[in-house]
């Protein structure tokens, strides 16, 4: 495949044609923040944290869905980008109830880590304190809607990797919510194969293994990558 040369944060690099800016940035050693992106499933460009500046393009572009082009000059960090990213994180914290101190994912949460990295030590917007429920009906897993950021990573692994189509989004706008089958308790779902991929995919404490207590919910992302490689490339790579 043809290679494209471009610069990321001033560093000249070459990337395969069709690669995304996000993929290319790894090579350049630039760390672009992401939330809705998950290696192995298609990207939706929804969280907008990965927005970058490209010289000559008036709009900010999502690194996860924008493919590289010859001569592109990408900036992954700037005062403006950092400000926007921080505001997006603040909006998320204000939107639902993220009380890290009592969360199963405390210390292993992507949202929490991003907040620390962006110096987000307080939220300037009014907390909305919605009353979203908790679904503990599944024998193995639990779902706490209060901690969901609607990144749809669980939905995408369920459809794209497992192929079960158990999870989806219902409603729209601020009323959007992750559902199981016909909006039934997870434990009653026929289509759920109990594979646990969604739990592995979740960036926050919204999905967890049953029985995890505060701070215990660590994820084994290697498992997902293993399955994706096996399904898509027919390669079974067990050891890293």
């Amino acid at each position: 495949m043809a290679a494209k040369t471009l610069t990321i944060d001033g560093k000249p690099i070459s990337a395969e044609e069709g690669a995304t800016i996000l993929q290319a940035s790894e090579e350049a050693g630039a760390k672009i923040p992401t939330l809705c992106h998950l290696d192995g499933v298609y990207d939706v460009g929804a969280c907008r944290l990965c927005l970058v500046e490209v010289t000559g393009v008036p709009k900010l572009l999502p690194a996860c869905t924008t493919t590289v082009a010859e001569g592109m000059d990408v900036k992954t960090d700037s005062e403006r980008l950092r400000r926007y990213r921080r505001m997006i994180l603040e909006l998320l914290f204000a939107e639902r109830n993220h009380v890290c101190a009592v969360c199963v994912s405390n210390g292993h949460c992507e949202l929490q880590t991003l907040a620390y990295n962006h110096g987000m030590d307080h939220v300037r917007y009014d907390y909305l304190f919605p009353k979203w429920g908790v679904d503990n009906t599944h024998p193995l897993f639990g779902m706490d809607h209060n901690r969901c950021i609607l990144c749809t990573r669980c939905v995408r692994v369920c459809w794209h990797i497992e192929g079960a189509g158990t999870k989806n989004v219902s409603g729209r706008g601020a009323q959007a919510r992750i559902i199981t089958d016909l909006n039934i308790p997870w434990g009653e779902s026929d289509s759920c194969t109990r594979c646990g991929k969604c739990v592995q995919a979740c960036p926050t404490g919204a999905l967890s293994h049953k029985g995890s207590t505060v701070g215990e919910m660590e994820r084994d992302r290697g498992k997902l990558e293993f399955i994706v490689l096996a399904r898509e490339k027919k390669q079974w790579v067990t050891a890293d």
Binding site: R48, I88, A94, I149, L150, G173
Partner: peptide
């Protein structure tokens, strides 16, 4: 409701 700035930003 897909992207955060619009979903949560319009509410605020």
């Amino acid at each position: 409701g897909k992207c955060i700035p619009c979903r949560a930003g319009t509410v605020q």
